[in-house]
Write a protein that binds this DNA or RNA. Structure first.
Lengths: 234, 234
DNA sequence: TGGTGTGAATACTTTCACAGCC
DNA sequence: GGCTGTGAAAGTATTCACACCA
């Protein structure tokens, strides 16, 4: 296992490799080449080989990768050979949708505490979990040793929530609020911002007539996994 | 207005600039320097100046940028000087949460049609909109001239939905399903995948003791807007 | 004086292409 | 023969640093 630092851009792609490998495994595939995997991912064989080489040498020349073994390696590298407790803050529309989402558990994440500010929400029960007042964040999160937080509160409250989570020991935050959070470098933040995504896509939609800067030349696929989807092509 | 092609990575940052500018505008600020804006964004002044220079020369030496004028320029560049109709496909937990989200309209997006597969969902009414059967996608989307789709269906159905949306004329897709969609290059796709985000963050959480590759040297902030948040620091 | 816009330098990422191995 | 792992090249993105300007 090489421990050259793995670039963050590579780390972000690893879960997609994992997801795809699990999929082909379910389909009964035991061995896969970088070329085949690239096909599934809309990526390139070279990129996949390079990315995986940051973690180690898992392939067999002439054969490709053993799907099962590679899944294990990725799970290990990503720290997914265990279950992670998560604290959810916010129980409005979005927070409730997140709390009811059934995709966390099968992927190794468990919502272990839910916090809200509104008295309407506090005390509600979801999946056997009582929604707690946000003033309990510090105590409960640190008592449970939770390292991951999900922020689903309005923008105006997000920074305060982030500060509390961090002071309670959280070191990874999934932020649904449309604000840039200020956190120490020891904390990783990932933003989910549908509005920004829509707003950046409209750049490519404006004015479908004067398209001279978008000359969709080849029949290539989007390749959502590539560094830059380049909807404007070459 | 320069029309050098704007790199996609820059296009993706423009909405964040817009969001921040609107925020400071609400706070009564009329003029802002790249340095101040960078402060708000956890970015750098040079990056902001470079990014904006792809769109034109909007600043005044010695003064900075007029907030109002810059907002207008960004709105124009992003095609946000109008309202965009959006088709939502999927009306499960997630689709319902999206349908009820109040953040689209104030940002220039309007859910103009909702489609579902399940008979339980078809016929329901939200915001005066009847949930239609997904077999209507082609007809309704093309009749309404909708160019933007949101996919909130299970992974197994996502590709088929994408194909239908595209054949109905959609050219931008916000995809909540955990699959890589195959679409023509003329279509832009942005993925929202909380599980992948969590799974990539756990990379930085494994094994808090042997931290030799993470030596959070400086007191820098996360800078979620930078190309690479580099939680592993230098 | 203070801050923009941008060449030039640096840093990072992807792709090419091939030696080496199963 | 077929496919990995990786140097080297090419391509992008960020940062520096400064001429220039209001």
């Amino acid at each position: 296992m090489r421990n050259d630092i793995v670039p963050d851009i590579v780390v972000r792609r690893l879960p997609l490799y994992l997801r795809t490998l699990r999929q082909v495994q379910r389909a009964g595939v035991h061995t896969i080449s970088s070329e085949e995997l690239a096909q599934y991912l809309g990526s390139t064989a070279a990129q996949i080989r390079r990315d995986l080489s940051f973690l180690g040498r898992f392939g067999k020349q002439g054969h490709g990768y053993r799907v099962h073994a590679l899944i294990r390696e990725l799970e290990y590298a990503l720290g997914l050979d265990r279950t992670w407790d998560v604290a959810l803050v916010g129980y409005g529309n979005l927070g409730q949708a997140i709390a009811h989402y059934r995709g966390f558990e099968p992927n190794g994440f468990r919502i272990a505490a839910i916090f809200a500010k509104s008295p309407d929400h506090i005390g509600q029960v979801v999946n056997g979990l009582v929604v707690l007042p946000d003033s309990d964040i510090e105590r409960v999160v640190s008592e449970l040793g939770i390292r991951i937080g999900i922020i689903a509160v309005p923008a105006s409250a997000a920074q305060e929530v982030a500060d509390r989570l961090v002071s309670a020991g959280v070191r990874a935050i999934l932020n649904y609020a449309p604000v840039v959070l200020r956190v120490p470098v020891s904390v990783t933040v990932r933003e989910i911002d549908p509005i920004s995504m829509l707003q950046s896509m409209t750049y490519y939609l404006r004015d479908p007539s004067c398209d001279e800067h978008r000359s969709y030349a080849d029949g290539d696929l989007t390749g959502a996994i590539r560094a830059e989807p380049r909807p404007e092509a070459r």
